[in-house]
């Protein structure tokens, strides 16, 4: 994986994702559609100095998730995830 400045770990996406979903998606596990790595979204790499949020795979840098929010509409692109595993509260 290439090094990068100005990135955060996926934990920092919790707030923007909570505005879209009713659960904290950073706790969900996602599978990278490119390399197959499975990890919690909180453990991914978040690029937020951009026109939207971009979450990339910690293993191969592939884009897992894009979120653009203009205040009145939001666009969520999950193409880079082959699944999201969301554990229900017991």
């Amino acid at each position: 994986m290439m090094t990068a400045d100005n990135v955060l770990d996926g934990n920092a996406a919790a707030g923007p994702l909570l505005e879209i979903f009713s659960v904290d998606l950073t706790a969900a596990h996602g599978r990278c559609d490119e390399c197959g790595r499975v990890c919690a979204l909180a453990e991914t790499v978040l690029y937020n100095h951009a026109p939207g949020l971009v979450i990339r795979c910690v293993g191969c840098d592939a884009v897992l998730l894009r979120l653009v929010d203009n205040g009145t509409r939001a666009w969520l692109d999950l193409r880079g995830l082959s699944y999201l595993q969301i554990d229900r509260a017991q």
Partner: peptide
């Protein structure tokens, strides 16, 4: 000159 980037910087 803000740096915006959607991914790691290619060298």
């Amino acid at each position: 000159f803000p740096v915006l980037s959607a991914g790691p910087t290619p060298r």
